[in-house]
Design a protein around this nucleic acid. Sequence first.
DNA 1: CATCTTTTGACGGGTACTCGACAAAAGTCA
DNA 2: TGACTTTTGTCGAGTACCCGTCAAAAGATG
Lengths: 387, 387
Amino acid sequence: MKTSDVFALLQRENRPMTRAQLAASTGLARSTVAARVDVLMRLGLVTPYGDGHSTGGRPPSLLAVNPAARVVLGVDLGATHARAAVADLSGQLLAEERADLDIAEGPDIVLAWVEAVAPRLLDQAHRPVHDLAAIGIGLPGPVEHSTGRAINPPIMPGWDRYDVPAHVQRAFPVPVLIDNDVNIMALGEQHTQFPTARDLVFIKASTGIGAGIIAGGELQRGAQGTAGDVGHIRIGRPSDAVCRCGNVGCLEAVAAGPAIARALQAAGSPVRDTADLVRRVRAGDVDAVQAVRQAGRDLGDVLAMVVNFINPSVVVVGGALASTGEHFVAGIREVVYQRSLPLATEHLRIVTSVTGERSGVLGAAAMAIGHVLSPEAIEQASLALTS
Amino acid sequence: MKTSDVFALLQRENRPMTRAQLAASTGLARSTVAARVDVLMRLGLVTPYGDGHSTGGRPPSLLAVNPAARVVLGVDLGATHARAAVADLSGQLLAEERADLDIAEGPDIVLAWVEAVAPRLLDQAHRPVHDLAAIGIGLPGPVEHSTGRAINPPIMPGWDRYDVPAHVQRAFPVPVLIDNDVNIMALGEQHTQFPTARDLVFIKASTGIGAGIIAGGELQRGAQGTAGDVGHIRIGRPSDAVCRCGNVGCLEAVAAGPAIARALQAAGSPVRDTADLVRRVRAGDVDAVQAVRQAGRDLGDVLAMVVNFINPSVVVVGGALASTGEHFVAGIREVVYQRSLPLATEHLRIVTSVTGERSGVLGAAAMAIGHVLSPEAIEQASLALTS
DNA sequence: CATCTTTTGACGGGTACTCGACAAAAGTCA
DNA sequence: TGACTTTTGTCGAGTACCCGTCAAAAGATG
């Protein structure tokens, strides 16, 4: 039983507890727990949370996790935008900034932006630089999470195998964690909406279509780090739409933003791009609504397979197409509940993202928080305190 | 650093090591390692493995994991057959028995068979009963692994929520682990063919079609324990074959044994059942070969999606249809390598099961071994030794 | 306001663990 | 054969950890 166990218990229970309760739950003596709590309080990770109600004698002091102990930086880098935020250890955003920034500018320019915003955001959050405990970054392409490098990214010239953590750590000497943007969005949705879900699939549908998979409580990246690549699965209904991957009938060639826009253009609607499509659907354009609903059905066709295969408890739909209201997810539900097995859909929830465009930074922050509050990190910190 | 860590190191390295090497790898003092090794040797889990070559002084004694320390019982219960085997801790089968036994007879009769074979197999392996360390059992239906109960199994009347471990433990007071038969087959293939693979998908194709998923090194059971249910995914090519699940165009309604047999019957070939189909393919019946190859393509259609989604390093194909030689898996490869993304198939291996009908018992044994050699179990055993 | 109850932090003792030293054992090399 | 080298098991010492005790603190109760 170590210091991190006491912290983990307090975090799991997610409610203020007395030292006596902690002792009872861990099986340790009261005095031992008191020592552990003392360390955690000196680290700032735990704070008194007022007094509990007395049962006749001195009232016990309640202890709770202190989200304000440190902060993390979450960065979401998209193809043509960048977003960064400072969050406390509960994942609450304290300051946020976004910019139009082309990832193709290369690591030097893009990471320079990151290094420039970070101090501004910390300042807005009224936090000194040394309160920053870790940085999480999402990149729009395949990433080798263990090394923090992008591997053969199709839309990120100059980033191939570039050592992102080393670059960022020159400016901020803290742990830097990198992952795929869809993976961090999955983490973000899990952290904010379904913190107890151990099997969750996140779908991002906008210019492309990708999935982030959390199975058995762990983010699944696959053998080559390309897990979740659902965009190039062939849909059920016959289609001869040619995909940029070279195959025909891919989901992305039918149900992604550009594909829908093209189809509407061919039918006479002057839809320019994905953003325009979203606007029209929100405005109630019947053709656009129907097209998005059909795209939802096509995605639902693939999701039905995914649900049968991995049997998640939650599917979260995000990306630009999910922000068109309920039309898109309605199309998805329609097909999934028809095609998937009853046993798999019985307790399945299919919901839209509530975090919208913030899911990326929230997930990047969640990844960083997960690192900072990991048992290993807490053990190390408590050791450093005593020596 | 605990006793289990020393054992885990010796097991990971998978080669005889000296105490000095163990000390260097763990960072502990030689004397501490010696004490740990002593405990492990008294438990029988580690044995001397001859002498290493001297470098001028006394030659060091090599230490290796001792697979003969204990034995486990692996049981594979199918719809109409049962198979049990005693294996050592390396997974090597020491004695084996099979029987024609209908799972629908109910738990009392089926488990009575298990309790009757176990002593016979132990006797054949020249092992006393108290050498038995754990029992693993695979059941042909959805199983709640944590409790060891079958949940709403379609083909197992009388088994619903029956407490299998409790029943078996009345006869053998050892840990009893239960899982779905396809899941244990996946474990078996991983253990025997690809012990280092962390992302492996096993496909069982015979009367039904199911998948066992190992992702991130862990068996994935999904939220309701129905993960891997690929039999009722709709295949790409149009089909109006009605499935027993009520939908049309399911993989199982097209590519499973009974479906192929029916199709061949309709075309004039008097194929009775799956076993007969397998015989004919092996004999070189052209119609049967073509039908199996087409079934492979249909399964490949679904597998292409699975490969894109979970990005495994290995796909192992087992079940009766995989025992027809290379025809079936050739059909699978044909489609997967065409439809899946190059990045996902670059290092992908698609192989047939080498264990054949034994994959079930091997996997059940592997599951039991995993429990016996788990860090927790070793810690507990070493504690019991000192007290 | 005095007494009682309960929590809290500090203190001392006991246990278990880990380390380094040392002598015996087992080969090598001249 | 004798000196040298390296491993092995034992032993004592130091240390870290964990527990129960106790007085002081803080509020409840009459």
